[in-house]
Every structure is written in C-alpha cells, then in structure tokens.
Design a protein around this nucleic acid. Structure first.
Lengths: 221, 221
DNA sequence: TTGCTGGATGCTGTATACAGGATACATGAA
DNA sequence: TTCATGTATCCTGTATACAGCATCCAGCAA
C-alpha cells in the first residue's frame, strides 16, 4: 500500500487572509485610499482578529502596507526616488538569475521559457492588469529556472511591493505591446552562454521598464 | 519653543522579542537543538504569548526558524546546496551595490569606508563571533553607502539567515585574518569607477568567502 | 520481548476580553 | 466666527481562554 502524505506545509488562516489581501490589491478592490481595519476585515471574513492581524503585520513587514496615522493600515505610497531603487534591486536580482541561466546554458530549459513567453505574450486587448500579470509571470519564470530559492523570494517581495505601489497604474498610458515584446530576445542572449552579456541584457531590459514607468507617470501626471 | 517630536516608529513588544531572539541566536544562547516554545518564552520574558508568537512567526517568515515536528520552533538547518544559493544571493545584492558605488565614485565617501574598515579590522585575538560581527559591519557599510534601502533590507535578511545558520564566519578552522584583510582592496576597485570591475571584485570576494566556508566544513567535518 | 491501542499531555491556532492612546467632535469662551 | 478644552469613540496592542491536533507513554495482547 502506498498512500501519499497529506502533510502539506502547515496552513494557517493568516495565510488565506494574506492571499486574499494580495489578490484584492492587485485587482484594485483595495485602493490607496482604503483604510484596512482589523475588526472590519475580520467580520467580513467571518473570522477573528488574530489571523487578520498576522496577515496585516506581514504585509507591513514586506513594505506593502503602512500604519495610517489615524489607525488602520494603508497601501504604502512610493516616491520617485524609491521607484528607482526598486528597479535597481530588480536589476540586482534578475541580473544575477540571468548570469546563472547563461552559465547553465540548458537548451531544453531555455526552450521551455520560449514556449511560456510566447503563450504569456499572446494577449487580446490586454488591460494594464493583464499586462502586469503576464509580465510578472514571464520574469518569474526566469527566476524559477535559475533555481535559487532566495533570489526567488526576493523577487516576490519586490514585485509584491510593485503591486502595492500600483506600478501598473503608471504604465496606463504607455505602449504596452512594445514593452511586452522583448522577452524572447532575452532568452537568445542566455543561449549564448555569455554571463556578462546576459547581465547587461537583463539590466537594460529592466532599465527600459523603468523608463517606460517614468514616462507613464509623466503622461498621466 | 522647539521641542522634538517623540513620535518614533511605532514600537511593539514583538519587536523587542525579535531583537532578543536575534541576539540570542548570534551569541549562541539559542542553539540548533533548542526548541522554542511560545509559552515558555513568554513566561521567561514576563509577557503574554501573543507578541512572542508574532516574533517567532516573523523569524519563520524570514527563514531563520522552522516549525519543529513535535511543536515549537527550531533553527533552520541549511544544506550545502542552499549555502551556495545564499552566497549567490549575496553576490547579487552586494555586487549591485558595488556597481552603484563605482558609478558614484565619491572619493569622500570611499575614504570614510576606508577608515571604517581599518577600524573594524583591528581586532585583537578575535573570536569567530567577533569576526562575524566585524565582517558584517564592513559589508553593511558598503550597502549603506550605496544608499538603496531595498538592497539594504535584502542584505539584512540574507545575513540574518547567515547568522542563524552560522555562515559567513562561523567556521572555526579557517584563517580568519586572511579573509578579513581584503576589504581595502575592494574600495580601491570602487575608486576606479569601473562598474564591471567593481562587480567582479565583489563577486570574487564573496566567492572566496564561500570557498573558505566549504573548506571550513571539510576541516571540521 | 515486541507490537498495538487508547488515553494523557503538550503546544499550537483561533477567539475573545480588556485597557490605553489617538482622533474627532461637540460644547463653551473670547 | 474661531479657538481651546473635555468627552466619546475608534482601533490597536496585549492578555487570556478554549478547542483540536499530534506526540508520547502506559498498559495489554501476542
């Protein structure tokens, strides 16, 4: 008899709350003007304050939320300087992943990435939210392929923040198609096995993202 | 009348607990065989379980602690593969900081770093713990100088883990003086303003740390 | 002895209770 | 009206209570 263990990662209510909050932030159910009150959320979810509190504190810890001065949590606002820092951090993380992938030079793996990218980029009338999700899933695929769990975690934290800051709000007015189209080229660079070139390519790609972002802010502002 | 605002960052009991736990882990009061029980810790600290719980969950979230199978938390054990990944992550973060510093090429700032390094490296009969602290403070100074708060945060998380796993320093049998001596050379590379060279130098320095680490394991194992 | 079963115990996760600080509002004085 | 002061209310942080899962151990069967 061979039964599979059902022992999965210990699951707490706080984890569910966390996921729901993230979801709500991404699809704008929670906006920058909303105050998140522990008791209110708890009664909406039909649970007690304790797990709600844990989820909120975790999001605060990750920099997504801040305590509002009159009680409750709010989405963190980000300055333009911080935006630059965020993109620098992205370049650090994703650039290193690129170096690793170039060193591996695993053609099978790279082909999988190409397939995934092709599928993810095939969007009909994408909203900015669709774009955000697609773009993130592509970049996350690179990170997963690199196979470093710490880099992957940091990636998630960074992109979690981006979500909180409504990164994709800023690209409302930019040329979405343009910025979605260049990912296959990144794989091609990885395929050469040149670690330095890979780093440069990813750094430039992220720099382009930053430029688009700033441009978007200017247009919408 | 000009009084200073007392309003500092909101301070919670959980923060104190967190700091005390980190301290205890660094100086080995808490070892890998200890089970951390919420109720026990709470009564030792003279507070309730709630803030203790929060601190423990945060350390779990950061990867320092894991739930023990028979209840309680334990220090996370790290595999050799994970050790490599941690060093790769360090290279990503600190390498990017090096690129930023090289781009700045701020001689005044670099001189401050030299002074700090000289002071920090001046240890008489250092224990491995002294070495860890000195090494971390030097590397952290580079990060602070780079002026990117996200990179700095990630640095702290990584080194927090390193501390828990007794990495980056806790190698009893290696030549401590050797590995402490090379930091001034890093500053010299930054002073050239060559971003690629800076990245390489830091990457190599961290790679050396990894090699020493592995060597230390072999000798003591 | 070895192996199984049921109960006791330990520790957690969640709910609830309670007290304090902060804000907002209302009331009254200038 | 405008400003200051007291008060009510909100919301948090911390403490405590409670129920359940998991482990461990004792006792019994083979």
């Amino acid at each position: 008899m061979a039964l599979k263990s059902i022992k999965t990662q210990r699951r707490r209510l706080a984890d569910d709350v966390y996921d729901q909050l993230v979801e709500a932030i991404i699809n704008r159910t929670i906006g920058p003007d909303d105050r998140l009150i522990q008791e209110t959320l708890a009664s909406e979810l039909g649970i007690s304050r304790t797990p709600v509190r844990e989820a909120l504190l975790r999001l605060e810890q990750e920099g997504v939320l801040r305590v509002a001065n009159s009680g409750g949590f709010r989405l963190t606002k980000i300055t333009e300087a911080e935006t630059l820092e965020l993109y620098q951090a992205r370049a650090a993380i994703e650039g290193q992943a690129a170096r690793i992938l170039a060193a591996h030079k695993d053609e099978g793996q790279l082909q999988k990435l190409r397939d995934l990218i092709t599928k993810a980029e095939d969007l009909k009338n994408p909203t900015t939210q669709d774009y955000f999700v697609a773009n993130r899933s592509i970049h996350r695929a690179f990170m997963e392929a690199a196979g470093n769990r710490f880099l992957l975690e940091m990636f998630d934290v960074i992109w979690g923040r981006g979500m909180a800051f409504h990164l994709f709000a800023a690209i409302e007015n930019t040329d979405i198609a343009k910025s979605l189209g260049n990912h296959i080229a990144l794989v091609d660079v990885l395929a050469t096995g040149d670690r330095t070139a890979a780093l440069e390519a990813f750094t430039n790609h992220i720099q382009d993202g930053f430029d688009l972002h700033v441009e978007g802010i200017r247009k919408s502002g």
